[in-house]
Design a protein around this nucleic acid. Structure first.
Lengths: 221, 221, 221, 221
DNA sequence: CATGAATGAGCCTTCATTCAT
DNA sequence: CATGAATGAAGGCTCATTCAT
């Protein structure tokens, strides 16, 4: 287990500070000086322990990815016996938990979010190691729900709709807090958000199945 | 004060370049050096015409907001006689156009998008002047669709779901291009995206109206 | 003439200081901080006027090359009517002047010398623009002296012997000043050195022509 | 004090790596990091075994000086019974071998060469312990060749001409490889170089002896 | 004997800004 | 109106060194 990372107070402190600052500011805006100041470490310690800023970022990414996947297991709590609808709900809830939770286990979510907005050189790694597996779980669930005959494109679009909603509830804090000062969408509202997104998405996905008699009303013109 | 409309070749060139670069990179990453280089202007010209980088950004914001509102009218092309469903479709299409279109009129959309994801000091201004009015149009449409008896909270959640989907289709390019190299979600697919998002959202919004006999199947557990 | 380099006090001061310090320390050891301190300029001035340390070095190289070639003309003071022996003497004297002179016009010689010992990225430029033309003059002189039938290799070796002697008289200062504190080989001894090197080289070059009856004595065993 | 001969694997490895790297890069450019990395040792080992970088350099200098003097005896393989001409040839050959040979015994030659061109604080030591004895051998040979009546100055100049040629053939690699890509002056051409330098120098030195009838042609003007 | 860890000084570069003309 | 010139602060990085075990 701990064969690779030689324990070190300074190293740990840097990882801690870097996790927080990278999560808060993103890779480009975060400065190693700030990180070291907050960690109470010398700037050169980063070179010693991680090589350079990139190495530190990569280490932080891997570290908090592990923590996140320990806290929220990779299978997203989905059991094979569940129905697709239940699986979708579980996926959304798990996804929201990962990206909305506060505290240390959520730093990975924030890091991921930053990479989503402004991809750095580390984005390719994240896509392959984290995003693709997760996205594949979702697409398979969606495919199971909307039926076999559907086109790949439709599955993709639908999956993106779901991810988009989840991510927005995470990123819209600055907007919402200004538009509706009272409203809060934090980790304590995850159940509500799960219900909401699952509801919207599920009915949206099933639209075609019911299209025969209901589509009329909506899109007849 | 009256630094607004003094026509000047240099000033125009800077506005042009700044619009493009701010839209592309966002406020923090964009540098006045790049802007001036592209505008063929002296660096000090920014100080002269706009005071500083902030002043330039503000001027750019205002300028392209005007252009955007000329190209995409503030009422989003929605006519009062339309049905709520048609209005929603119009809103989504208009919103997508604004954020996905290329060329000058779309720069404001991109600027907005950047502010959405990583708010700067200019965000408060944008929220009040642009986002709030637009968001209110959406909430009123949504409220009309899901019925009067519904709670404000539900309306808000639903509106956010719609906005979230639209924004995600705009910002997911880096991910999608890596996950599914062939798939493209650009300004040429706006009709497809409009159909998709409208479809999902509309059926999602209407879930409660049909909840009596259909909710059973979905959330039976 | 002065169309390119916009005159500027700071720029000139930096060129002056950089010339001295680069000549003294060589490119890698010289620091822009020292240069700016000595020039009484801000560090960022280097970025403004020359881009970066490399740009400054290149500018210094070009500038003092011009001065050196103005002071010691490119044809090395050789006239076409001179005999090869006289040309050799003129070349050696000119070469020594260039590399041993003190003061500003000699900085180029020192820069060249540093590049000779520890080539940097700028070495290729110097080889093509300065060293090759100069070396070709020498080889043609040498070829004329040792006769037409001789191999290229012999001409090359002989030319190198001459250059080697000249350079050593320039670079041996630290050694000589320690071994023989009284002896001095500076710019004031250039005539003596010219005589010496010309003598050695000329007789050395002509060895084969006299080989018939004299070589015996020397290498008979 | 007695830090000289405590055998230790790490110490030996550092000496080995330091010899190679110092020989290759010279004292200022070589970094203790590189040395330790190549030696597979910890950085702090240098402090432990040698005090600091200076101490290491000094130890390396002494160590490879010993090896060099074992491989190439201090008398340069010159026997007392040889003629001055033979002695000169032997000296040149020996000198070339020392500075051009590859492999461990030649490291000292390279270290010396670096000090020659850019003297460090260690130069004084080398001058007294190595250069002076060696140079005295050369001057005595030269004195024997050009005759007793000659001035010291002439002997010095001539000796420097010889050393200068040898050193140049060692250091001109970067230039020659660019000017004449095909030509090579390495350790395999030592015999050729020895012949060449001996030839040039010998005839050069003897110029005055033949000056009566030949100087006319050369310096008639 | 040896080493992992930590340090402070210094490197080059880039930024937005402001001065003076 | 406009610009060339200059500035101070801060960025990431690397160096030889030293501490504590």
């Amino acid at each position: 287990m701990n064969d690779k990372k030689t324990t070190s107070k300074t190293r740990d402190a840097i990882m801690e500070a870097a996790g927080e600052i990278f999560a808060e500011e993103g890779y480009p805006k975060a400065t190693v000086r700030d990180i070291c100041r907050q960690a109470g470490a010398n700037i050169a310690a980063i070179n010693y322990h991680f090589g350079d800023k990139k190495g530190l970022y990569l280490a932080v990414l891997k570290h908090y990815q592990e923590i996140a996947f320990q806290t929220y297991p990779p299978n997203l709590g989905i059991e094979k016996t569940q129905s697709p609808e239940e699986k979708l709900r579980a996926f959304i809830r798990s996804f929201l938990l990962r990206i909305m939770d506060d505290g240390r286990p959520a730093w990975f979510g924030k890091l991921l979010a930053h990479e989503f907005m402004e991809p750095t050189w580390a984005f390719d790694i994240l896509v392959e190691e984290t995003i693709r597996p997760s996205f594949q779980i979702l697409t398979s669930i969606v495919a199971a729900i909307i039926g076999k005959g559907k086109k790949e494109r439709k599955v993709l679009l639908s999956s993106m709709s779901i991810v988009g909603q989840c991510l927005y509830f995470r990123h819209s804090h600055p907007v919402i807090s200004r538009l509706f000062p009272g409203e809060i969408f934090g980790c304590k509202q995850i159940d509500e958000l799960t219900d909401h997104i699952t509801g919207i998405s599920l009915h949206g996905l099933l639209q075609d199945k019911r299209a025969k008699h209901q589509q009329v009303k909506i899109c007849k013109r």
